[in-house]
Amino acid sequence: MTAAGALFALSPSSPLPQPDWLPWRIQQPIAFNHNVHVEELGFECVDCHLYALTSVRATIPNIENCADCHEEAQTESPEEAKLVEYIAAGEKVPWRKIYRVPDHVYFSHRRHASIGAIECEVCHGPIAEQVKPVGRPYWRPTMDNCMECHEESGASNDCVYCHD
């Protein structure tokens, strides 16, 4: 029972916080702090995720966006120092994606966030409060999960709407 409990706690589908050493926990090159940017500095999601409302992908901001503020270090944070280094070197930060859908699925941010007017938090959770990068999706984009939400919100579950 204990073992099963532990397994569950560590499994990718567990709602509990995941220790960093788990292989399925996605590590980011820089421990980005959403909290500072959103709660303290008052950025909106789309200020950095530029295309979240208008395009297929929200896009993860990279040095072009970050350089606006972080050309020089703003704080003493060692994580920020890494970013400044990337910017200085003109190198892209190798962010890793956490939310992925397979090849045969069409997912459009515009369709959901803009047309469907779904708040970012519905899928991405209280991301604004996170002081460290999340290691796994808050809401896993599995077909069951998608279809459940579609059912509840009255969106179509017709296969070809999302599969091509």
Binding site: L50, Y51, T54, S55, V56, R57, T59, N62, K97
Partner: peptide
């Protein structure tokens, strides 16, 4: 390549 991987799909 970078654009295509992470770009907004514009």
């Amino acid at each position: 390549v970078e654009q295509a991987l992470r770009g907004p799909g514009i």
